[in-house]
Every structure is written in structure tokens, then in C-alpha cells.
């Protein structure tokens, strides 16, 4: 598709305003980036610098020792490192994919079809967003064990499918972005419901589901401990690293290296999908 080239500078924007905005963003950006910069610096610090008081912000003699330590520790464990990575990638990718498809399907139906009980379903979903997860721990475990999903990766993936935040966001975005007229036009042209859903609705809400991918992937990648997995070779990377971190003071260096490693992937995911979002700017199909 040939894209209409937008003018770089809008008429009513002044140079001074641009500079102000950039300075503002730089200042705030530095502020927000500080913790990450600090984490990265820490991961390159040799042992003596880690314990300097008051702590120094930047590293003066960078080494890769922390990373080597981390991999040594991981090598020493009974399960190979690649196994943990596979588990995590499986959980994040399958969980995210399923979640995005299922929740967009549901959201599409909830906002574009009129059927009995749709308001009830939507209300239940929104209400469940607000419920405290602590008190559901015991029944949760029992349901998982009745489904036979204890000690399988599905115990992490399946709940991700049904997480209600995605549905809520998708529904709100579809209400804003998908005009009824375009659906009617497609129906008159003879498109089936699935065709409409996959090639029109999903196309129109690309920014929404890319956003959803970011949230869901980020959450699953960094999944906090759950009570459903006890077998060592099924634990995701994050659990394994958590076990390392609980090694206490001697592992500070390795743990900061782990932090940096865990951070990189969500950030890359984010940058990738964000660049996609920008591309979708001019794809609106309506002329009214």
C-alpha cells in the first residue's frame, strides 16, 4: 500500500515549542531511565565496587565477571540453562498469542453483536479485574489439580488466555476504532464472519492488539512465582533466576547481571511492536 507522506512539521508548530518539548522529554526521560542505567552499571561492577559506601552511580572498572558468574551458577544446576529459556519462551509466546486472539474474538462479539447476556458477561469480566488474588490461592490450586494441570506449563499458559484486562481494553478500543458501516459493507460483499474478523476487524485494531501483546508478553516473561510448578525442568527462567537471587549477599553481582538479561527481551519486544504501531497510522479505511 502506498502511504500518503505526511508533512514533517505541522504549520502551527514553532521551533521554540519543539525545543521545549525535547528538553522536557530529555529531562523526564533521564529521570525515568536512571534505575535502568543504574542496574546496567551495577551489572558491570567488580566485587569491590559493588560494596562501596556511599554507592557510586557509574562503574569505573567494568568487568564481565558478573555475567560469567551467572552462567557458572546456571551451569552448575541440574537442568540445562536452555531448558529454562525454552520454558519461558513457550509460556510467553503461546500465552500471549492465545490471549490476544481469544480476547479479541470475545471483545469483537461483545461490542458488535447483539445477543442475550452480553452485558452480563462483560460486567463479570470487569468485576473480576478488581478481585483480590490472594484469597483465591487455595481454590485456584484445587481447580488446577482437578484439571490435571499441576506440574505442566499449561497451568501458566491457560490462565493467561482468560486474563480479563485484555478483553476490557480490546472492547473499549473496538468501540472506538471499528465503525459499524465497514462491517456492513463487508457483509454485503459476502464476507463470512471469520473473514470479517480476521481481515477487517483485526486489521483496524492493530495498535490495540500490539499494545496487548506488549502487556501480556511483559507479564508472562516476568511471571512471578506461582504454586503450580514443582518440577525443576519445567520452571521458567524467571523462577530459576529467583532461586539464584535468594542466594543472598554473595550473589549480588550475579543477580544484577540476571536483572539486565531479563530486562532486555521485553524492551526489545516493546521497541519492535512500537515501531509497528507507528506504521499503522494511515490505514483507516473510512471516508465520511
Amino acid at each position: 500500500m502506498k502511504k500518503f507522506k505526511l508533512k514533517k512539521r505541522r504549520l502551527n508548530r514553532s521551533l521554540g515549542g519543539d525545543i521545549c518539548i525535547n528538553i522536557f522529554l530529555l529531562v523526564f526521560g533521564c529521570f525515568m531511565a536512571l534505575p535502568m542505567v543504574y542496574a546496567i552499571c551495577t551489572s558491570f561492577k567488580p566485587a569491590d565496587e559493588l560494596w562501596v559506601y556511599p554507592p557510586r552511580f557509574f562503574v569505573s572498572n567494568p568487568t564481565l565477571k558478573n555475567f560469567k558468574d551467572l552462567f557458572n551458577i546456571l551451569d552448575a544446576s541440574t537442568v540445562p540453562f536452555s531448558r529454562y529459556i525454552c520454558n519461558t519462551v513457550f509460556v510467553s509466546v503461546v500465552g500471549t498469542g492465545g490471549h490476544v486472539i481469544l480476547s479479541s474474538m470475545c471483545a469483537y462479539a461483545l461490542c458488535k453483536f447483539k445477543f442475550h447476556g452480553r452485558q452480563v458477561i462483560f460486567n463479570l469480566v470487569v468485576l473480576s479485574l478488581m478481585f483480590n488474588t490472594t484469597v483465591t490461592a487455595i481454590p485456584n490450586y484445587i481447580i488446577m489439580s482437578k484439571l490435571g494441570m499441576i506440574d505442566t506449563l499449561w497451568s501458566l499458559v491457560i490462565p493467561a488466555f482468560g486474563s480479563s484486562l485484555g478483553l476490557y481494553l480490546m472492547k473499549q478500543f473496538m468501540e472506538q476504532m471499528v465503525p459499524d458501516a465497514i462491517l456492513e459493507a463487508a457483509r454485503i460483499d459476502g464476507a463470512g464472519e471469520f473473514k470479517i474478523f480476521f481481515s477487517i476487524v483485526m486489521r483496524l485494531v492493530i495498535p490495540a492488539w500490539l499494545t496487548l501483546i506488549i502487556f501480556s508478553f511483559q507479564g508472562l516473561w516476568n511471571l512471578a512465582d506461582t504454586n503450580f510448578i514443582y518440577r525443576e525442568d519445567l520452571k521458567p527462567l524467571n523462577y530459576a533466576l529467583n532461586q539464584i537471587l535468594s542466594g543472598g549477599v554473595t550473589r549480588v553481582g550475579a543477580s544484577s547481571a540476571a536483572t539486565v538479561l531479563m530486562m532486555i527481551v521485553p524492551i526489545i519486544m516493546f521497541l519492535l511492536s512500537q515501531s509497528q504501531i507507528v506504521e499503522t497510522l494511515a490505514t483507516s479505511g473510512m471516508k465520511d
Binding site: F28, G29, M32, A33, P35, M36, Y38, A39, T42, L50, P55, I214, Q218, G219, W221, N222, L223, A224, N238, L241, N242, L245, V252, S255, S256, A258, T259, M262, M263, P266, I267, F270, L271, Q274
Partner: peptide, 21 residues
């Protein structure tokens, strides 16, 4: 955009647990 999203990444999982940061 990535920088402004950082806190969300920093506030989860291992990253949160790492003592120093």
C-alpha cells in the same frame, strides 16, 4: 516511548527482586 514504559518492566519479576536496584 520505551523509556517511559521502563518502569513497568522494572517493576516486575526478577528485576524487582534484585536487591541493589
Amino acid at each position: 516511548r520505551a523509556i517511559f514504559f521502563l518502569p513497568v518492566i522494572m517493576a516486575t519479576g526478577v528485576v524487582l527482586k534484585a536487591d541493589m536496584s
